[in-house]
Amino acid sequence: MSQLPIVALVPTGGTIGARGRDRLDLAFYGELDQQHAMEELLEVIPEVRAVARVRPVPFRSAASHALQVEDVLRLARRVVQLVADPSVDGVVVTHGTNTLEETAFVLALVLSTDKPVVLTGSMRPASGLSSDSPINLFNAIRLAAAPGASGRGVLVLMDDTVHSARDVTKASTARLDAFRGAELGPLGFIEPDGSVLFHHRREPWPAEGAFSVSGLAALPRVDVVMSYLGADASLIDASVRAGAAGIVSAGTGAGFPTPAEQAALEAAADGGVVVVQASRTGSGRVGVSPAVMARGIVSAGNLAPVKARLLLMLVLTRTHDPRRVAEYFGCA
C-alpha cells in the first residue's frame, strides 16, 4: 500500500459534487448551490484506495460558468506548485463541465511536466440517480496514477474516455458522452477491466507549456466576435472601443467573416489590435491567405474560438507582433 502513487485532488466545484433536491433532480440542482464535501465523494468509492493514495487539496468551489480568468490563473499556480512537489505523482482537478475545456487548455499552456494532470467532471449531479460522478472521479484518479499517462500533457477524463486538453470540447448540453475529441477523436479509453489504453502518439504543439503564471495576476482583454449572415462591424467596433488588445473572429464556414466584418477587422489590426481568425464550425483548420496575413491577421489553425482566445490572451503578455503570434498558433 505504501508504494501506491500519490495523487493530489483539487476540487473546484461543479456537477460532480453537486447535491440536488432529490435523485431525479438532474437539471436544476445548481439552483440549490450545495456541494458534497470531497471526503463524502471519496467515501462512495473506497476502491480508490487500491490504485492511489489521494491527497485532497482545498480550493474555491464555484460553478464553472461563474469562474473568472483570474480564478483559472490561481488554479494554474496551485497545480504548478503541486507538480513541482516531488512527493506528488499526479494531479486530478474536478471541475464543472461548462468551461472545463477552457480551464484544461490554460493548464496545458502553462504546465511543463511529465506528471499526469487530469481534469474531470460529471454530467449528472453526485446526488442523482445513476450519476456518473463516482466512476468519473475514480477513473480520473486511476488515470493520474497510470504510468502510461506520464508525458502526455494535460488530459480530460469523461465517460471512460481520455481526451487531450488541446482538442477536447463539450459537444452536448447534458448527454453522458458530451465530451468529444473534435477531428482527432479521443486519445484512449479506460477499459472495463481497469486497463488504461492509449491509441494516439504524443504530439507536442508549439504553445504547450510555453507560458508561466508566476506573477501573472491578470491577462489582456481579448473578445470573441461570432459572424453570421449579414453581420456588420458593430460588435468589432464595440470591442475596440472597450479596449480589447485582441479579437478572435469566429468566422462562418471555413473561417470567413462578412465583408463588413473583414473591413473592421483589418482596421482594428491597423490600429494595433491583434486579430486571430477562427471558425464557428468547431472543427477543421482555418487557412488565412498571404494577402490577409500581410494585413496582420493570424490563423487560429484548428483551435476553437474560445481556446484561441485563451491562447491569444497569454501570447499578448509576450508579444503583439502578428508574425510571432502566428508561431504560437503553429501557423507561421
Rank of each mutant, 00 (worst) to 15 (best):
Q3G: 12
I6V: 15
L9Q: 08
T12N: 10
G14N: 06
T15Q: 01
I16L: 11
G17P: 08
A18Y: 09
L24E: 13
A27P: 02
Q35R: 15
H36M: 14
M38C: 07
V57Q: 09
A63I: 13
Q68I: 08
D71F: 01
R74L: 14
R77Y: 05
R77V: 07
R78S: 11
Q81N: 13
V83D: 05
D85A: 13
P86T: 11
G90R: 01
H95P: 01
G96C: 05
E102A: 00
T103G: 01
F105A: 12
L109M: 14
V110C: 05
S112I: 11
G128L: 02
G128T: 08
S131M: 04
N139R: 09
P147R: 03
A149L: 06
L157G: 10
D160E: 15
H163A: 03
S164R: 02
A165H: 01
T169G: 15
R175F: 14
F179G: 03
F179A: 02
R180K: 13
E183R: 14
P186V: 00
G188H: 00
I190R: 02
I190V: 15
L197D: 15
L197C: 10
A210G: 11
F211L: 04
V213G: 05
A218E: 10
A218Y: 09
P220M: 07
R221A: 14
V222M: 10
V225S: 03
G230S: 03
D232S: 08
A233L: 08
S239F: 02
G243I: 00
A244P: 06
A245E: 12
T252F: 15
G253Q: 04
G255I: 03
F256N: 14
P259I: 05
A263D: 11
A264I: 02
E266N: 06
E266A: 15
A268E: 11
D270T: 15
V276P: 08
S279F: 12
R280M: 02
G282P: 03
S283A: 11
R295C: 12
L303P: 00
V306W: 05
L311G: 04
L312F: 06
L312P: 14
V315A: 11
L316K: 04
G330L: 01
